[in-house]
Every structure is written in C-alpha cells, then in structure tokens.
C-alpha cells in the first residue's frame, strides 16, 4: 500500500482532501516524515484513520452503503467459520490447520478492515442475527462436515460475485476500489480451496472454478441455484467466447464459463441471504 499514491489518488477525485484532513495543507505535503515514522504494519490503520479524518460523516452515502453491504457479508462469513472452527468433531484437524484457520483469519480481517474504513458509519454486528442453517435448509451445517463444506463453497462463490457487482460503484474512490478488488481476489482464493476440499472429500467432479453447462450452478446443491444464476454467460463485452480461436477445449461452454466469473447485484445477493442466513433485528 503506497500512502503517497493514495493521497494523490484521492486528491484527483476530491481536490479539497488536503483541506479536509488539515487546513494546513503542508501537513499532508510533508508526508515523507509521516511515512518514515509509521511502521509498515501500521499503515492500514493509519490509512483508515486518515480516510475517516478526511471524510468523517461525509464519506459519500453510496460508498458507505456499499461498504456496509460488504461488511454484512463478511460478518456472515466470519460468523460461519468462527462457529465451525469452535465445533468439536466438525472440521478434521488437518483441514482446520491447512485451510479453515486461514480462511477464518482472512474473513475476520476483512470485518476489521471494513469497520475501520467505515469508522462510525459501520453497521454493528449486533444489528443482525445469523442463522447458519438458513431456516433449516442446512440443518446439520455445524455437525456434518459435508454440509459445512457445501455452505462454505456457496458463501465464497457468492462473496466473489457480490464484490464484483460493486466495483463500478466504487470508481469515485480509487483507494477503496483497490481494497475491494483485493478482498474480492482473496474470496476467490478461498472459493477455489473450499471447492477443492469439498471435491476431495466427496469426489463430485467439482472444479475449483465454476463450470456452467446447463445452468450456472455446478455444485449439485439445488438450494443454492440462485447463487449461481447468470454464471453460464458465454459472452463478454460483445465477444462470444465460444467462437474465438481454440486450443484444446477452450471454446467449450464449460471452459469459457469457468474462465470468467460473473457479478451479482446487491439486490440479488441480499434476496438470497436476508431472511435465511441473515436476519436484521427489528
């Protein structure tokens, strides 16, 4: 994370940034001494403090909404892995240390990162109740490892789609956009691994990438069909990928749908999760 670029980037969008952070602009212009005195590890915190200072309550409403939406999804994922890891005899020890301790760490870090970026605008976790069984659809999610893995796959794939659906809403705040696409890539790393582990366990023929043939959903879990709707798209930016020059099976529907992940709108994502996994407290 290059703090100097970030300041420059924000200034391009918001020329008054320097004044917002401090009326004496030379404080910002003298960032060299600031940078050298702040340990690299502390930069993300320093950065979010700076952002908060800069925008305070005036962080654009649309950006606050996107970040709170992302935070809600991260609350759900973090809750899922925290509870799963706390269950005795759910996740085999080898898989826990190799995979789910790390995924859980990342999801909790995402929560913290988004909370810091939002500052006082962050929706508290206490605003929601989380039902990991989704009203009983996945009743044994915390006692049956197969079910846990299936829900993990659905959450991660949906998380990737959800972040992708918000990138254009963040173009006015480049630093936040970079953070969002970077979280998005980590969700995709998790998704690939969750799929890999589920496939290793059940030998479903499931790939680490989403292979759509007849429908978007390749997981065999009918309850999450909606989470994969639209993944069977074969056309990108007006280019039909099945008609391009081929190597191997690169122009097959299975391959081109796997080669491009599709976004999901906020409304579609929330419709899939709210009322089942996520219940706002009244």
């Amino acid at each position: 994370m290059n703090l100097f670029n970030i300041i420059e980037d924000i200034e391009k969008i918001d020329p008054e940034l320097g004044d917002r952070i401090n009326p004496r602009r030379n404080v910002i212009k003298n960032m060299a001494s600031f940078g050298s005195k702040v340990a690299v590890a502390a930069l993300p915190f320093a950065f979010s403090t700076l952002l908060k200072k800069a925008y305070g309550q005036t962080l654009p409403t649309s950006v606050v909404e996107v970040l709170n939406y992302a935070l809600t999804l991260e609350y759900l994922e973090a809750e899922f892995y925290n509870q799963g890891r706390a269950q005795a005899n759910l996740i085999p020890a080898a898989d826990k240390s190799a995979y789910f301790d790390k995924i859980s760490r990342d999801e909790n870090n995402h929560v913290t990162f988004l909370q810091k970026a939002l500052g006082s605008s962050a929706t508290p976790k206490s605003a929601f109740t989380f039902d990991l069984t989704a009203n009983g659809t996945f009743a044994d999610v915390l006692t049956n490892y197969d079910t846990f893995l299936k829900v993990s796959v659905a959450f991660e794939d949906t998380g990737v789609r959800a972040y992708k659906g918000q990138v254009t809403a963040l173009q006015s705040v480049p630093d936040i956009l970079t953070a969002a696409v970077s979280i998005h890539a980590v969700e995709a790393r998790h998704a690939a691994i969750a799929r890999y582990v589920l496939n290793k366990k059940l030998n479903l023929g499931l790939k680490p990438w989403i292979v759509s043939t007849t429908t978007g959903n390749d997981t065999g879990i009918a309850a999450v069909n909606g989470n994969y709707e639209g993944e069977d798209n074969v056309s990108q930016g007006g280019v039909d990928l099945t008609k391009l020059p081929a190597t191997g099976t690169s122009t097959s529907k299975a391959s081109v749908t796997a080669a491009f992940d599709e976004p999901l709108t906020k409304n579609a994502t929330l419709a899939l999760l709210v009322g089942s996994f996520i219940k706002p407290k009244s």
Partner: peptide, 13 residues
Amino acid sequence: GKIVSVEARHAAV
C-alpha cells in the same frame, strides 16, 4: 474483475 477472480482461483489451487 471477472478475470482476476479466476486468476485468483488458479493461484490458490
């Protein structure tokens, strides 16, 4: 974005 998440899937595996 559609491509980078697939690259990330590759990277992880």
